[in-house]
Design a protein around this nucleic acid. Sequence first.
DNA 1: ATCGTCTATCGTCGATAAACGATGAATCTC
DNA 2: GAGATTCATCGTTTATCGACGATAGACGAT
Lengths: 110, 110
Amino acid sequence: MNLPLTEARNTCGSADSQVVATKLAALSHPARIEILKHLSASRSCCCREVVDHLDLAQSTVSQHLKILVDAGLVRYEPDRQRSRYQVDREALAGLSASLTTLVNSCCSGC
Amino acid sequence: MNLPLTEARNTCGSADSQVVATKLAALSHPARIEILKHLSASRSCCCREVVDHLDLAQSTVSQHLKILVDAGLVRYEPDRQRSRYQVDREALAGLSASLTTLVNSCCSGC
DNA sequence: ATCGTCTATCGTCGATAAACGATGAATCTC
DNA sequence: GAGATTCATCGTTTATCGACGATAGACGAT
C-alpha cells in the first residue's frame, strides 16, 4: 500500500484540504453511501436498479450519481439506453488513505 | 403524512450510513479540516487561537467548532472564560476505520 | 465597580443542496 | 411505426450551510 500523498504534513495546505473536503462532501450523504454500497454489491448498476433499491425519485438518484461521478468516486459508462455505474475502487481507496493520513497526523502530534 | 413504509425499501440510508454521513459531513469543509490539523498540532486550543490562525470571524470559527463537537470528532471543555477544544483521536480513528471498512466491502465484491 | 477579553448564540443574508415532477432524447419491444 | 423503458437535464420549491455583525454572559485585571 503506497500512499501517493506527498504533502500530507503541510499544515497550511488549504488546497489539499479543499480537495479532500470535496470528496468527503460527496460521501457525506446517507443516500450516496447506500448507493456506493449497492454499486459495490453488484458488478455494475444502471440508474434504474439503484432507484428500485433506494425509494427515491429517479431524477434524485441520477443527481446523486452525478455527484459521485463528479467527485471521481464512481465511473460512468453509457451503455445503449442504459447507464453503467461502477465504483472506482482506487479513488475510494485513495480517499480512505487521505483520511487515514489526516488521522495519523492528528495522532502523531501528541 | 408519514406513511410507514414496509421494510422492503431502504428509506434513504440505514442508520449506520446516517451516522457515518454526519461525521463525514463535519469533515467536508476545508476550514474544519484546517481546524482539526491545528487542534492536533497544539495539545489543546481555545477558540481565539483558531481564529488567529484561520482568518475567519470568531463567530464563524465558533460555529465550525460546534459542528465538529456535535459530530463527536472534537471534545469540548470549558476552562474559565476560555474554551478548550481537543481532537478526539479515537473518534477520528473510528471514522477512518468506518471508511476503510466501506472501501473494503466495495473491493470484496470483485 | 468598571473595563477589556474570550465565548457562545442570535438574527440575517446570499448561496448551495436536496428533492421532486415534467420533458425530451435514445433505445428496446412488438 | 407505435408504445414502453431508461436516462439526464431543466425548472421549481424548500431546507440547510456558511459567513458575518451584534449582543450578552462570564471572567480577569485594574
